[in-house]
């Protein structure tokens, strides 16, 4: 069944069609959430919230806009997830992560990014301001076009081009500052 048809049926309340959509897109959501700074252990929660929200808005958007909405909602959910956390949870994290600065546990991160070179680049991306981080992630890891990114972020096309250019420059200088780690592969 083509995706547009699935979306249409889901919009009409077909749960099976929606389940199918979740199966098709959950990897995108999980990866995107991780790349946006969500901790590995929190990804299941965030993913769940994204698909619940997506369903809530499902009837409001055109089928063609599904991808845009998926990214838009993931971005907002990831952002809100940590904003809404209780103080206890923050304390708990502090106890868990003695390093303090790491946004994920060492072991969980290690499982995903086994090469030092990857970890270095991933961390450099995470330290970018989100206005630079999001375009880089969408452009290079999700192959979204400038137009799509502009639509997800609701900013003009020209701004996306500027931000991407600037983001690359920032990444290059961050990597060069670290001396360009080259090992592990």
């Amino acid at each position: 069944m083509v995706e547009l048809e699935l979306i249409e049926r889901a919009q009409q309340g077909d749960k099976a069609a929606y389940t199918e959509l979740i199966h098709i897109h959950h990897r995108t959501v999980e990866k995107f959430a991780f790349q946006c700074g969500v901790r590995v252990n929190d990804i299941p929660d965030v993913t769940q919230e994204v698909f619940v929200k997506l369903y809530r808005f499902l009837h409001q958007f055109q089928r063609e806009r599904f991808t845009t909405w998926l990214y838009k909602i993931t971005l907002n959910t990831a952002r809100d997830y940590y904003r809404k956390e209780t103080k206890e949870k923050v304390k708990e994290q502090k106890l868990n992560f003695e390093g303090g600065l790491n946004y994920t546990t060492k072991s969980a991160e290690d499982r995903v990014l086994i090469f030092e070179e990857d970890r270095e680049l991933h961390n450099a991306i995470q330290t970018l301001d989100e206005k630079y981080r999001h375009p880089i992630v969408m452009f290079y890891f999700h192959e979204l076009s400038y137009e799509q990114i502009a639509e997800v972020l609701n900013v003009p096309l020209s701004t996306i081009k500027i931000r991407l250019m600037r983001a690359k420059a920032l990444l290059k200088s961050a990597l060069q500052m670290n001396g360009g780690v080259k090992h592990g592969r």
Partner: peptide
């Protein structure tokens, strides 16, 4: 060179564990 490294990193993200629970999502809905 930067783009090459970004590409390599992209493939590393495939190792991210997945544990989506569609039943739980549908129940919440």
């Amino acid at each position: 060179q930067l783009e090459e490294r970004l590409n390599l990193l992209k493939s590393s993200y495939d190792r991210l564990p997945s544990s989506v629970d569609t039943d739980e999502i549908l129940r919440k809905i």
